[in-house]
Amino acid sequence: MAELSEKTDRYERLLSEAVAEATVAGPAETPLADAGADCMEMAESYLEDGRHFRDDDDLVNALAAFSYGHAFLDAGARIGLLDVPREGHLFTV
């Protein structure tokens, strides 16, 4: 159980840092910018959900939520909807 708790905390920190670093890439008021904003919104929502699950001691769903949130950021970055740092540990692009 300690390993799950540590992993959940690590993924929460990773997603929180990644959300802070990512920005929408497309020009404002375009479908690309809207799609980038949707990716950001989903990541932020999963971060909030994961924190809620963790507060309820539901570490499995918290970890899943943090993982899904980060997946939205990675996918958005890979297809050019989000600008993210290319160096470091936050993204796989």
Rank of each mutant, 00 (worst) to 15 (best):
M1Y: 01
E3G: 04
L4S: 13
L4C: 07
S5H: 12
S5G: 02
K7H: 06
T8K: 02
D9M: 04
R10A: 13
Y11G: 03
E12P: 03
L14Y: 13
L15V: 02
L15W: 12
E17V: 03
E21N: 05
A22I: 05
V24E: 11
P27M: 03
P27E: 09
A28D: 09
D34F: 09
D34N: 09
D34V: 10
A35P: 03
A35F: 02
A35E: 09
A35K: 07
G36F: 00
G36L: 03
A37P: 01
A37K: 11
A37R: 11
E41W: 01
E41S: 05
A43P: 02
S45N: 08
S45I: 01
Y46A: 02
L47D: 00
D49H: 07
R51P: 08
H52S: 13
H52E: 10
R54C: 07
R54L: 10
R54A: 14
D55T: 08
L59M: 09
V60L: 15
V60I: 15
N61D: 15
A62W: 03
A65V: 06
A65Y: 08
F66S: 00
G69C: 04
G69L: 04
H70V: 00
A71K: 06
F72W: 11
L73V: 01
L73C: 02
A75N: 10
A75Q: 14
G76N: 12
A77E: 05
A77C: 04
R78E: 14
I79T: 15
G80V: 12
L81I: 15
L82M: 06
V84C: 13
E87Q: 14
G88Y: 10
H89P: 01
